[in-house]
Design a protein around this nucleic acid. Structure first.
Lengths: 211, 211
DNA sequence: ATATAAACTTACATTCGTTAGTTTATATGT
DNA sequence: ACATATAAACTAACGAATGTAAGTTTATAT
């Protein structure tokens, strides 16, 4: 907004972070990555539009960096939530639930960011495999936790954990996505819906709460 | 594309349908409603861009009409599928499943259209309540079928059908949306996933197939 | 003092929604 | 059969926004 003071000799890289932050702020405010025009980003940071090119080769590169950072943030939020659940004595089930709830909160509080991560054909030049790879760690973590849960359930020991992880992912995403995109419907608490779906899919025996 | 022959006196309205169809075709090809520029639509139909204004007051009105038509198509597809299931002797459960499968096919075969219906903040000036109202009939129908199913299950007779409908909607949408937006992942058959989720949520006793 | 990193100004070529005014074909009245 | 009113479409153009290229200025570290 205001004129930005010039960075020192070696610290031109500081601006890179500010540009990234501005792009992320714009997406959050507008609810969509289309709001990221180089001119809008530049104005937000307080620089001239072409100065962005000193730090990103083109607009797609900027959006790709945003995507990466947002995935990192979501992964960090999930990990923290899981660790809190574990620290409180929670087992695999409680950790899985905590991670899912963290995603729900992320999605509902920052719908523009969530849509970019999971509803995005955002970066035109970006091969989808790359975008999919960003989210892969979450998928693996969920499948691992589910495997752990299944091991405590003799009658389902050889269920396919990967498949159950997919079902839970789909259910969680469905709740978040619908609530974001149809906000005027009367929605029950999203976390309750997600927990219902997770219980229905997994049926954890020792879930700590009700059977 | 080629020069279009002029419509007769009273039949200017024919062009309206062609414009609608062109917009729908563009969305299908590009996978997003951003592809609907008045110039692109006009070229597709074979007219000049401003001629669109004879039939739609502005771009948003065109997109709104597209939205309406696509919802109508989806509703029709669902109804046909349900009727086929009923004609084959299927009960409420089989009809519910057939409707869900029809939506899955619609979504995977026409991802751009599906995204417009369920992931769209498409029409900037369109109040969301209106867009939500377009999809309302499906929601009501699903809840009705679920109520019917629950009535055949004494032990769950007073479960909340509206809530179960929401869970199934979310699950179905989640499967479709994720498969659309992360197409490079290895996806099991989408209908199988949806059926798993529906069974997990409803646990129909007499589902006709396995318990 | 000077080399250079950091950022600027200017501008080009597209694309877009939309407005204004104009042309052309068709149906109708005589 | 012919003139005419009008529906149906056209051409031209404006103003705004966009990604990006080219060349220039300015502050800082050596």
């Amino acid at each position: 907004m205001t004129k930005r003071q010039r960075n020192a000799r070696g610290e031109g890289g500081q601006l890179r972070q500010d540009i990234l932050g501005a792009a992320i702020a714009l997406i959050d405010r507008a609810g969509s990555s289309e709001a990221v025009s180089l001119r809008a980003v530049a104005k937000e940071v307080g620089i001239a539009a072409p100065s962005v090119y000193a730090h990103f080769p083109d607009r797609d590169a900027l959006l790709l960096a945003v995507l990466q950072q947002l995935f990192d943030e979501l992964i960090a939020l999930r990990s923290e939530a899981e660790e809190r659940a574990a620290a409180a004595g929670g087992g695999a089930w409680q950790q899985l639930r905590a991670g899912a709830f963290a995603t729900v909160h992320f999605g509902l509080q920052r719908p523009g960011h969530y849509k970019m991560l999971y509803e995005g054909r955002v970066v035109s030049g970006l091969s989808d495999p790359m975008a999919a790879a960003f989210g892969r760690p979450i998928q693996l973590r969920v499948a691992g936790l589910i495997r752990e849960i299944l091991e405590g359930m003799p009658e389902r020991e050889n269920d396919d954990a990967e498949r159950l992880a997919l079902l839970i992912w789909a259910g969680t995403h469905g709740v978040i996505s619908l609530q974001i995109n149809k906000p005027t419907l009367r929605w029950p608490k999203a976390t309750d819906l997600v927990e219902d779906l997770m219980r229905a899919v997994i049926r954890p025996a020792n879930s700590g709460v009700s059977p």
